[in-house]
Amino acid sequence: MSDALLDVTGLTAGYGPIEVLHGLDFSVADGEIVVILGANGAGKTTTMRALSGMISRGGTINFGGRSIGGMRPDAVLRAGVSQVPQGRGTFTDLSVEDNLLAGAYTLRGGTPGDDLDRWYGVFPRLAERKDQKAGSLSGGEQQMLAIARAMMNRPKLLLCDEPSLGLAPIITQELFQVLGDLRDEMGMSLLIVEQNAGLSLQLADRAYVLETGDIVATGTGDELLADDTIKEAYLGVVS
């Protein structure tokens, strides 16, 4: 796919001598929502960390036509890729507003005041709690904060690492609604890694299945939702 926004080929990464990812190929087109589905230990978080430049990685990562595979995290952010980390990663001792301002850290010049207003508009709960410590928010609110913080960097691509983790089903539904809105209303592209196959595949334009560091299946969200093996492995449906 030559017109892809994010084009990854042969991605390898690991920790010390242990290779976790054995050469992944995947892509995200402009305005597309792509889900990488995987169980615990499949390599989902490693994939996200490799894309963000948090760990050293092999293979090629092209974003918007330029290689970001050798960049440090701050350069990846400036190139237009933000990450919502697993477990939300909010600065628990900092106020909600400081969390958002930290998200705009790599933006040069100007005050991010307009961005603050914009995200307070999207998430009124955050506006109400802007002076509270982020650690005092509920899990769902912290996840919204993590998304808003990542968006403060004005990215073109948003990486979400298991956003549904530890959230009640009703909150998870709300959350995926928000992620869908980011694409529909702002034209964002999203790459989401998830275990929650049901909701994430409904949202996804395309999806990949990751198993122990290899991509073993790919298709549109609907195709994978209809796939018997997927149903069995990720939805707990025995066919």
Partner: peptide, 23 residues
């Protein structure tokens, strides 16, 4: 100051600081 915000962020969570582009 922005640098002070970064110092407080690093004191709180180094991994997340890295993720928002703080060196």
């Amino acid at each position: 100051t922005k640098i002070g915000l970064a110092m407080r962020a690093v004191a709180n969570n180094q991994e997340s600081s890295n993720l928002v582009g703080i060196r």
